[in-house]
């Protein structure tokens, strides 16, 4: 418990991060409680179309073009959007870190080979991959998550590799090598903690970015039409942006808050995890 408490003490020094955590927790609570608070299909037509927000208690945030309750959809949207963010960033981090660490630590032929592969992926425009995946798998959450992970991992790989390169020739690593420590232990226990802060920052950027990317995909008509996400709500409401701003504006605000919250949390994590800043 003690280390956790210490961590929390360091974390809470960053007031922004505490605020961010509050946002993320709220969103998570919305996601978890949605089916319990509002049973039934969130997309069902509940009232008249285009009821403005804060007009009636029945629909506190108004209704969209088909008369679906925006408030209820917002809760369900949290489930999908957070899922997309978390799943995409975890897959991304896993692929990116593994490849980046291997390439950075071993270098040489393996490193070169991995980096060539990474480069190849980078040269294929994201939208191509997204379109291929979405059309093969059909527009679904899974294809959206995979598309985002596949276009994002290269960045993580490159950053991880660059960090590993920086540390590989440092004294404490060389000392471990001399002591006969196995490579995987050096990677995991010695170098990795040191490169973690930028990777945490990177991963959180990707989690946040995934939520944004999902909204862009929806904008281009490549989102999943059967599940409610904030991105999908924002994209669908865009055509009435000028007349009923709230249809795309409210889920857009939710995206803004969630992305902001995640980024603030990642900053807090960065502060709390960073061994050098700890001394200050």
């Amino acid at each position: 418990m003690e280390p956790l408490l210490q961590f929390w003490r360091r974390y809470r020094q960053n007031r922004g991060a505490v605020f961010g955590l509050a946002i993320v927790l709220t969103a998570s609570a919305m996601a978890l409680l949605a089916p319990w608070l509002f049973p039934g299909d969130p997309r069902r037509i509940a009232g008249a179309p285009y009821i403005a927000p804060f007009v009636t208690w029945q629909f506190p945030l108004g209704t969209d073009q088909l008369g679906r309750d925006i408030f209820v959809q917002l809760f369900y949207g949290a489930r999908v959007s957070l899922l997309v963010g978390i799943a995409a960033s975890l897959v991304t981090a896993l692929i990116g870190c593994t490849i980046g660490a291997l390439a950075g630590f071993y270098g040489g032929r393996l490193g070169a080979l991995l980096m060539r592969g990474t480069e190849m992926f980078q040269t294929i425009p994201d939208i191509m991959l997204a379109l291929v995946l979405v059309t093969i798998l059909q527009a679904s959450l899974l294809s959206v998550i995979i598309s985002i992970a596949i276009v994002s991992w290269t960045t993580v790989a490159r950053v991880t590799r660059a960090e590993f390169l920086k540390f590989r020739s440092q004294d404490f690593v060389l000392a471990c090598v001399v002591m006969g420590m196995p490579s995987w232990r050096i990677i995991v226990s010695q170098i990795f903690p040191n490169v973690l802060p930028p990777i945490v920052v990177m991963t959180s950027i990707i989690a946040a970015g995934a939520i944004l990317a999902e909204s862009s995909l929806s904008f281009l008509g490549l989102g999943d039409p059967n599940s409610v996400s904030w991105g999908m709500m924002t994209g669908a409401g865009r055509s009435v942006f000028r007349n009923a701003w709230y249809v795309s504006g409210i889920p857009g605000l939710a995206i803004l808050m969630a992305v902001l919250g995640i980024n603030l949390v990642s900053d807090g994590l960065n502060d709390a995890l960073n061994p050098r800043r700890r001394e200050r």
């Binding site: 299909d41 997309r43 037509i45 088909l66 059909q138 527009a139 039409p225 059967n226």
Partner: peptide, 19 residues
């Protein structure tokens, strides 16, 4: 999206496919 909701009222589950 509307048709999906409409046929839900008569017990038919709709699955939208966008391509």
């Amino acid at each position: 999206e509307y048709i999906k909701q409409a046929i839900a009222n008569i017990g038919i589950n709709g699955n939208i496919i966008v391509s």
